[in-house]
């Protein structure tokens, strides 16, 4: 280290012996507090704050009954997002990985969800049902797992056949679907009465319940919440996390995190681009790792060569200290 550098470091680290000025910290704080309080009370009175009501299963069943019906079929066949999610909800997939690191699997299944049982059968069993529904529930519960999947998959294929029913349950051709159509219709009926929201909230017979994992997962399996989020510009690939419902400002402090999701390589929809597909499929894990490094760079910036020198290369500091430099000179 050069002598000049050593002297410089010494000036920075030793207590200031140069000229001083009066500076009343507490007065500054009191004025600042008054300003912030006035701003906060004023902005709140002028602009209020966002509170778009939470979605309910009752609302879903009334706004998009066909979609809820199809979602229930997917829960039974195992094709829904929740049913095939993997840890921490079930073992039906390995989840994401960063290269060879499959961190998602490490803690195993800590919040178990059996999609067909928790979303269809248990809620139906929790209250009195018409005889046909009770019979359908027993037919399902006494069937083998393979039989259940065969019924539900056959029905799901028929229901979603674009050349056939195309989502319209009344146009599904006859077939060996077991109790699946009856169960799905029963859930939608139960939801439209409002009972399904209560059945999920008190699942397992709990009086107190503050865990909304199952409700949130199921709500996300259909298109009802997803469509509303798209309409509100809340999707992850359109900076959704930094946006807010209505016309309020959002969580812009998440922009650095959200940024990575906007990059084409983490947004790939071209199946031929295999590298980008791997990146996109594992985007959540890879971006978490990237952000971990970004945060380390930010926290330890004083020790990062190059980054820590930017303020010397772009001397905005001369604006900050121009009054001092003018009066007392600079090197």
């Amino acid at each position: 280290m050069s002598t000049r550098h050593a002297v410089r470091d010494d000036l920075d680290s030793r207590p200031w012996t140069g000229p001083t000025r009066r500076y009343d910290i507490l007065k500054e704080g009191a004025i600042a507090l008054a300003i912030v309080a006035v701003l906060t009370f004023g902005l709140s009175a002028l602009f209020s704050s966002p509170d778009e009501p939470a979605l309910t299963f009752k609302g879903w069943s009334q706004s998009a009954p066909d979609n809820m019906y199809a979602t229930m079929v997917a829960e039974m066949s195992g094709s829904s997002e929740t049913a095939g999610y993997g840890p921490p909800y079930n073992v039906n997939s390995d989840g994401l990985s960063i290269g060879p690191l499959a961190l998602q699997k490490w803690f195993g299944v800590t919040h178990p969800i059996d999609a067909a049982q928790d979303f269809v059968i248990a809620p139906l069993q929790s209250q009195q049902q018409p005889d046909a529904v009770t019979a359908a529930v027993s037919q399902w519960t006494s069937a083998s797992a393979d039989q259940r999947t065969a019924w539900a998959t056959a029905y799901e294929d028929a229901l979603n056949d674009p050349a056939g029913a195309n989502g319209d349950a009344t146009k599904v051709p006859a077939g060996d679907y077991g109790p699946v159509p009856t169960l799905a219709a029963a859930v939608v009926a139960m939801a439209s009465s409002g009972a399904y929201d209560g059945a999920l909230a008190s699942a397992g017979g709990h009086f107190f319940n503050t865990d909304n994992t199952k409700q949130t997962m199921l709500m996300g399996d259909g298109s009802y919440m997803d469509d509303l989020a798209t309409a509100g510009n809340l999707q992850g690939n359109t900076w959704g996390m930094v946006n807010e419902t209505g016309s309020w400002p959002g969580q812009q402090w998440l922009a650095t995190y959200s940024f990575w999701y906007q990059l084409p390589m983490f947004n790939n929809e071209d199946p031929n681009n295999t590298v980008a597909t791997v990146l996109t499929d594992n985007a959540d894990a890879i971006i978490f790792a990237i952000m971990f490094v970004v945060i380390l760079l930010f926290v330890f910036l004083p020790f990062i060569p190059g980054l820590r020198s930017i303020p010397r290369w772009i001397p905005i500091q001369r604006l900050v200290w121009r009054q001092y430099y003018r009066e007392y000179g600079k090197r």
Partner: peptide, 27 residues
């Protein structure tokens, strides 16, 4: 509940993959 409650959907500006709501831009 606010004299000018911002309940209406926001306008968005988009430049390629960069997009922002007007309220966020104002901030």
């Amino acid at each position: 509940n606010g004299m000018a409650a911002l309940d209406q959907p926001a306008q968005y500006l988009t430049w390629g993959w960069l997009s922002s709501s007007i309220p966020n831009l104002i901030v």
